[in-house]
Simulated scan of single mutants.
Amino acid sequence: MNREVLGRWADHGLDRSVVGGYTRFGLAVRRRLPGWPADPAPGALAGRTVVVTGASSGLGVATAAAFARLGAAVHLVVRDLAKGRRVADDIGGDVRLSRCDVSDVDDVRRFTESAGAVDVLVHNAGVLPASRRTTPQGHEIALATHVLGPLLMTELLQPLERVIFVSSGGMYAQKLPLDDPGYTRGEYRGAAAYARTKRIQVALVPLLARRWPGTTVTAMHPGWADTPGVAGSLPGFHRLTKPFLRDADQGADTTVWLGATRPAPASGLFWHDRRPRSPHLVPWTRHSDADSQAMLDWCATAVGLTP
């Protein structure tokens, strides 16, 4: 058995262990395995425009800064302009700043009217609500932020070279919520709402790759990263795992790689640490292609798009 095959087996073992693969140690080991994909070339994004949503903290800042270092013109999309300006000043270079609440589909439409041409779009904006909240259009806030707003934004910004959904390993514990996408029934739990909508993201990616055939559409999960969102929304998890968490740059690594590597990665897949991964770890989360299509039809209709 050659070294690259052994490397793939080791990588697979880390992935299935969850704890081993999602921590900073998992990334450190993988970087040393045979077959680790090469970094994007210097200047790989020169002449390209990249939009990063949720770019005022955590993974969004690290992602935007890395794209800028690769030569991109970076468009930071934030809800808080004051925080966004501080990030833009720190990054320097060719940086543009816009305010947009991705959960509000009317605000998304307004933003896209003035965004100009975009090459790479990263859906990084996220929310883990303490209680059920709705948008001005009546959509549950996690679903709107992670699925509905990004779906509409991507459609309205076409043509695009690449689209990347920053998902979460938390989606592995959830089924596709076909019977209640808006989480209107049962006891509402923010962590479950977050994970359910991340499952929807990953389920829709193969269909969106077909909907936008000229665009490379991918989803990824960053592993366990030490971000303000994790510390604020999951304080217990953060305390227990802090010594093992990835920093923001490590969490953003695969997003940056997916956006800048040449040739483009395979479309329609779910990635972690620069390799495609199965979207299911347990059999009870599996769904059919018809289920995914029904979910896409529901989401498209919810934001006024043709299914």
Rank of each mutant, 00 (worst) to 15 (best):
244 F>M: 15
59 L>V: 08
100 C>L: 13
144 A>V: 00
93 G>D: 09
154 T>I: 11
196 R>L: 12
232 G>W: 02
307 P>E: 12
280 H>S: 14
81 L>Q: 09
276 P>D: 05
238 H>T: 01
125 A>K: 02
7 G>C: 03
123 H>L: 04
259 G>F: 04
283 P>E: 13
223 G>V: 07
291 D>Q: 07
240 L>D: 04
85 R>P: 02
241 T>M: 15
111 F>P: 00
3 R>E: 14
225 A>Y: 01
252 A>F: 05
67 F>E: 01
221 H>Q: 06
114 S>D: 06
104 D>A: 09
203 A>I: 05
135 T>C: 10
264 A>T: 03
152 L>M: 08
267 S>E: 01
202 V>C: 12
1 M>Q: 10
41 A>H: 06
43 G>F: 09
12 H>A: 15
104 D>G: 09
41 A>D: 10
282 V>E: 04
155 E>M: 01
61 V>H: 11
190 G>C: 07
185 R>N: 12
78 V>M: 10
110 R>S: 14
87 V>M: 13
174 Q>D: 05
272 H>D: 10
29 V>A: 13
74 V>D: 03
154 T>M: 15
65 A>M: 01
168 S>T: 05
87 V>I: 14
1 M>C: 13
38 A>E: 11
24 R>S: 13
227 T>M: 12
114 S>R: 13
180 D>V: 09
282 V>P: 00
51 V>K: 05
155 E>Q: 11
234 L>Q: 11
305 L>I: 08
123 H>G: 04
233 S>G: 07
90 D>A: 15
137 Q>L: 11
78 V>T: 08
247 D>K: 12
12 H>T: 12
265 P>A: 14
243 P>M: 12
213 P>F: 11
36 W>F: 15
51 V>N: 06
169 G>S: 11
288 S>D: 03
263 P>E: 06
304 G>V: 03
277 R>I: 04
25 F>L: 15
249 D>N: 10
82 A>D: 14
128 L>D: 04
184 T>I: 09
34 P>K: 09
55 A>M: 12
89 D>V: 13
13 G>D: 06
128 L>E: 07
262 R>F: 08
116 G>Q: 09
206 P>E: 04
160 L>Y: 05
203 A>M: 12
11 D>Y: 14
